[in-house]
C-alpha cells in the first residue's frame, strides 16, 4: 500500500531523511520508531504529500502522492502539532471534511460521538490539548480513510482514551483493511499495536522487521561456567551487548534460538537461561549498535 523508494530530503544543510526505503502492506500497522530529530516527522509529511522529497519515490496505492488529489482523498494525516481553523466547532469541521473527503461517513461520525464525549458546538480552540486530539481522531475516523498517517498520535490522551483509540485503530484495520503508519519515540506505546517496526536513526532506517521476527531473533541470555568464561566462547556469538556480573555473563545475542542454544550447550555451562526480552530492550540494543546514548531514548 505504501511504497517508499530511496527517499531523500534536506532542509538547508541538514539531511533530515537519507535514502529511506520502506514498504507497508495493506492492512498492516507500521510503527516508525526513532529518537527526537531522527526524521520521523519529515518522512511522514512526505508520505502525506506535504513535503516534496528531493529524491526518490513515494507511492500510495501505486500512485505518487504529492499534489495527487485522488490519493489524498483516501489518506488522512494527523500531525503531532494539530491545526484547526480558528474559531471553528467540531460541527463546522465535520462539514468541512464532508465536503473534502468522498469517503466521509455520517453514520460513523454520529456513532463515534459515544466514544468521544465532546460538545459538537464548542469552539475547538477552547478545548484542552487532549480534547483537541480526541476531536482530531473523531474526525479522522469518520473520514474512513484507506491510509492513516499518525505522527505521535497518542500524546496528551489519558490512558482510557489511549486504549479506546488503539482499539478503534485495530478494529478499522481488521474490518476494512486500513493501512496505518504510526510514529512514536515511545516504544511501549505502540508495542502492542504494530505488526511491523522500522527504526529511524539520523535519517536512516537502521532496522526494519516484522514484530514477531524481531522478538524471536534477539535473545537475552545469562550463562556461567565452571572455571570462568572460555576464551573462545564469545567468538561464536553475535553479541550485541555483554555485561559480566561476578561469574555470570549476561549478553544479548542475535540469531535463531535453537542455534544459539546448541552453541552454548557445547561449552557445558553451569547456569544457562534465556530471559524474556522486551521490545524496548531490543530497541535500546539496536540503537546502541549505531552509537546512540541509550539512556536518552527511553521514555
Amino acid at each position: 500500500m505504501i511504497d517508499v523508494r530511496g527517499v531523500h530530503k534536506e532542509f538547508a544543510d541538514v539531511e533530515a531523511v537519507k535514502e529511506v526505503s520502506l514498504h507497508v502492506a495493506r492492512g498492516s500497522i507500521y510503527g516508525l520508531l526513532g529518537s527526537n530529530g531522527a526524521g520521523k516527522t519529515t518522512l511522514l509529511k512526505m508520505l502525506a504529500g506535504i513535503y516534496k522529497q528531493d529524491r526518490g519515490d513515494i507511492f500510495i496505492g501505486g500512485e505518487p502522492v504529492f499534489e495527487n488529489t485522488n490519493v489524498k482523498q483516501k489518506l488522512l494525516f494527523l500531525p503531532d502539532a494539530l491545526y484547526f481553523f480558528p474559531q471553528t466547532t467540531i460541527r463546522q469541521m465535520a462539514q468541512f471534511y464532508r465536503d473534502l473527503y468522498p469517503s466521509w461517513s455520517e453514520e460513523r461520525f454520529t456513532r463515534l460521538q459515544e466514544a468521544f464525549p465532546l460538545a459538537l458546538d464548542k469552539k475547538i480552540h477552547r478545548m484542552s490539548k487532549g480534547m483537541q486530539r480526541q476531536a482530531a481522531f473523531w474526525l479522522a475516523f469518520s473520514v474512513k480513510p484507506e491510509v492513516m498517517i499518525l505522527d505521535e498520535p497518542l500524546d496528551g490522551l489519558d490512558a482510557v482514551m489511549r486504549q479506546k483509540v488503539k482499539n478503534l485503530l485495530v478494529q478499522e484495520v481488521a474490518e476494512r483493511q486500513m493501512t496505518v503508519i504510526i510514529s512514536s519515540h515511545n516504544l511501549r506505546e505502540v508495542e502492542d499495536l504494530c505488526d511491523h517496526i522500522g527504526i529511524l536513526h539520523q535519517g536512516e532506517i537502521v532496522l526494519e522487521k516484522e514484530m514477531d521476527e524481531l522478538k524471536t531473533d534477539v535473545h537475552k541470555i545469562q550463562v556461567a561456567f565452571r572455571g570462568g568464561i572460555p576464551s573462545s566462547f564469545l567468538t561464536g556469538l553475535d553479541a550485541v551487548y555483554k555485561e559480566q556480573r561476578g561469574s555470570v555473563l549476561l549478553c544479548i545475542v542475535r540469531g535463531q534460538k535453537e542455534k544459539v542454544e546448541a552453541y552454548i550447550h557445547q561449552f557445558e555451562p553451569v547456569i544457562f537461561d534465556v530471559l524474556p526480552l522486551t521490545l524496548e530492550e531490543i530497541f535500546v540494543y539496536e540503537m546502541g549498535g549505531v552509537g546512540y546514548a541509550i539512556e536518552n531514548i527511553l521514555v
Partner: peptide, 9 residues
C-alpha cells in the same frame, strides 16, 4: 501542513 495535507491541489 494542514492545508497541504488536504485533498486539494
Amino acid at each position: 501542513d494542514y492545508m497541504h495535507s488536504l485533498p486539494l491541489r
